[in-house]
Design a protein around this nucleic acid. Structure first.
Length: 593
RNA sequence: GGGCGCGUAGCUCAAUUGGUUAGAGCACCGGACUGUCGAUCCGGAGGUUACGGGUUCGAUCCCCGCCGCGCUCGCCA
């Protein structure tokens, strides 16, 4: 027989005068000398239990402490007038204890099990079982499970097949660093844990599975960030015989089902589709927060003939390689910011690779501020009109090469949105960013690299000019890749893939891979493409990040049951740890130093 | 690998220019109290100031090293 008849969140006025037994943890106890209250907690809620003096249960109740695991039997009773707790679902009733059993005592916990805590993350991770007893953490785990369950149901209804791909797979030297697993059977050989199931899902399409998805664990041995864990989960899907719109519709349907189930939020698909170039022009970033407008105004053409030398010189080189642009943005209502606040924006710009930010305040008499003196009266009127400036607005400008200006202005727009209270939790704005270029230049090394990954197909309209573009102007080559963004976060990315061997080889070779190299790494995929591989494409996005967004969590760690510290360690288990010499011998490993 | 910050009671933090016995809130322990719900009131205990070294009459404070944590740059196709 079960140790309980009800959960701690279940009892209502309708249960009055019924017997009930509850099991859970001691949330709180209040000893009045005579009457004694214990709040008993489980996953479902909290119920007040009353112990009257003179009873055996009352005697036992004085022995329990916080987080004791207890079992209580008694009668449900309406609370006396004036003692109803309206903040609690069970607040109309209480259980009058007839017996209390201590199922297990508890040491005094290292931190209090309360909703709001500011305990160091390391301590919370060391005692994760206590941290996970907290309501917000349990809510997050439940929401995550609900999200995935709704998503599975939706995708199943759309004929998707859930397939598990290997955890022990083949190392790929490019991309992120692999987690390696030594092989016992093959001395000196190693498996790699998957960075993503990318190639396997393409193989599944070649196998004719047509629609695949997986809640996939991915692992990358790179240094951590607040929004990055070494192991994480992606919703990974792939479809055959599709255009991007087909993929987007399935992602929209499934993520919306997940959001509705987990967070009670309607994402209102279909999401806007925004070309990469348009996003860069209007927002300076490929993951714009669309909860607010504040679109950029392109002043490049206008600046070619203006008096302000900084703008004019940037505009004069427009269109050339590495050429300049001039962009303005109206931070509506920020005109009242202090000089100190405005100067802080320049510091922000410097942190993002710029020299600073030019600004003008809109006042009744016109424009006022650091660069006002460089413009004629007529120019001031025009600039104000172009940016729709009203008194009380702050106009901000970036001029210089495109990469630098966007590198500053894109994040600056989000920063302004934060400061102006335009990015508050509660609304969710998604968009597809489409038509990414095939390649981009690595600003550090100067090398040309794939924007997404080397399996992305070039845009169809560029196919007949592929050779010419690869030779002369590879950065102008369009790709069939796309990202899903929400509230200024990149949730995930995908593409229509290359499905022909000759095309895949040309891309590898363009990227500087020699035949022996790509044969060794991807020969099996290239060969598979020769057996009637269908056109296919797909998408993958981060579950941890999605849950954190949906719940408004400060840290990705709170969306993960058992996360790792910034040094990729687990304070609870002590992983990673040394292993015995025997274990090392088995896998033919000798450590150095 | 680099930069910045933090490390003091179980937890979160304080401690004047380097100066007497390192404090507070919460938690914990004891006592009082018959309707609380962050109960209240009274009392108590609790410290290798992360660790190792140095400077100094004297170090929580200054210096060097080291470990851990957090943020970040590199990195993350």
């Amino acid at each position: 027989m079960s140790l309980r008849t009800h959960t701690c969140g279940e009892l209502r006025a309708s249960h009055i005068d019924q017997p009930a037994t509850l099991a859970g943890w001691v949330e709180n106890r209040r000893d009045h000398g005579g009457v004694f209250f214990i709040d008993i907690r489980d996953r479902y809620g909290v119920t007040q239990v009353v112990f009257n003096p003179g009873t055996d249960a009352h005697k036992r109740a004085s022995e329990v402490g916080p987080e004791y695991c207890i079992h209580v039997a008694g009668m449900v009773r309406r609370r006396p007038d004036g003692t109803v707790n309206k903040e609690r679902g069970t607040g109309e009733i209480e259980v009058v204890a007839q017996s209390l059993e201590i199922l297990n005592a508890s040491k005094t916990p290292p931190f209090e099990i309360v909703d709001r805590i500011d305990t160091a993350p390391e301590l919370r991770m060391k005692y994760r079982y206590l941290d996970l007893r907290r309501r917000p953490m349990q809510r997050a785990l439940v929401a995550r499970a609900e999200f995935c369950r709704a998503l599975r149901n939706h995708l199943a209804s759309q004929q998707f097949v859930e397939v598990e791909t290997p955890m022990l797979t083949k190392a790929t030297p490019e991309g992120a660093r692999d987690y390696l697993v030594p092989s016992r059977v093959h001395a000196g050989h190693f498996y790699a844990l998957p960075q993503s199931p990318q190639i396997f899902k393409q193989i599944l399409m070649i196998a004719g599975m047509d629609r695949y998805f997986q809640v996939a664990r991915c692992l990358r041995d790179e240094d951590l960030r607040a929004d990055r864990q070494p192991e994480f989960t992606q919703i990974d899907l792939e479809m055959s015989f599709v255009e991007p719109e087909d993929v987007w519709a399935q992602v929209e349907g499934s993520i919306s089902a997940g959001f509705a189930a987990a967070f009670g939020v309607d994402l209102q698909p279909p999401f806007p589709r925004i070309a990469y170039k348009e996003a860069m022009l209007k927002y300076g970033i490929d993951k714009p927060d669309l909860r607010f407008g504040m679109q950029f105004v392109d002043l490049t053409d206008y600046s070619k003939s203006c008096n302000f030398k900084v703008f004019r010189e940037a505009a004069d080189s427009a269109g050339l390689v590495g050429g300049g642009i001039v962009r303005g943005v109206n931070a509506k209502g920020a005109g009242g910011w202090s000089r100190k606040e405005i100067d802080a924006l320049s510091t922000f710009a410097q942190e993002h690779g710029g020299k600073g930010v030019a600004w003008l305040r809109v006042v009744e008499s016109g424009l006022d501020g650091s660069i006002a003196k460089f413009f004629s009266d007529g120019e001031k009127v025009t600039i104000r009109e172009m940016l729709a400036g009203q008194p009380g607005d702050l106009l901000l400008f970036g001029a210089g090469d495109e990469t630098t200006v966007n590198g500053v202005m894109g994040p600056l727009r989000h920063h302004l949105g934060d400061k102006l209270g335009l990015r508050k939790f509660g609304t969710f704005k998604c968009a597809w960013i489409r038509d990414f270029p095939m390649f981009e230049r690595n600003t550090k090394t100067g090398a040309i690299e794939p924007t997404n990954h080397p399996f992305t197909s070039p845009t169809e309209s560029d196919l007949n000019r592929l050779t010419e573009k690869l030779q002369n102007d590879p950065l102008s080559l369009g790709g069939r890749g796309y990202d899903l963004v929400m509230n200024g976060w990149e949730l995930g990315s995908g593409s229509i893939r290359i499905h022909r061997r000759d095309m895949q080889e040309r891309i590898f070779e363009f990227l500087g891979l020699k035949r022996e190299e790509y044969e060794a790494k991807f020969g099996f995929l290239l060969e598979a493409l020769e057996y009637g591989a269908p056109p296919h494409g797909g998408f993958a996005y981060g579950v941890d990040r999605t849950i954190a967004l949906g719940l408004g969590l400060d840290s990705l760690r709170d969306a993960v049951a058992f996360p790792k510290t910034s040094a990729a360690a687990d304070p609870m288990t002590g992983a990673p740890s040394p292993v015995s010499d025997e274990q090392l011998r088995d896998v033919h490993i000798r450590t150095i130093e």
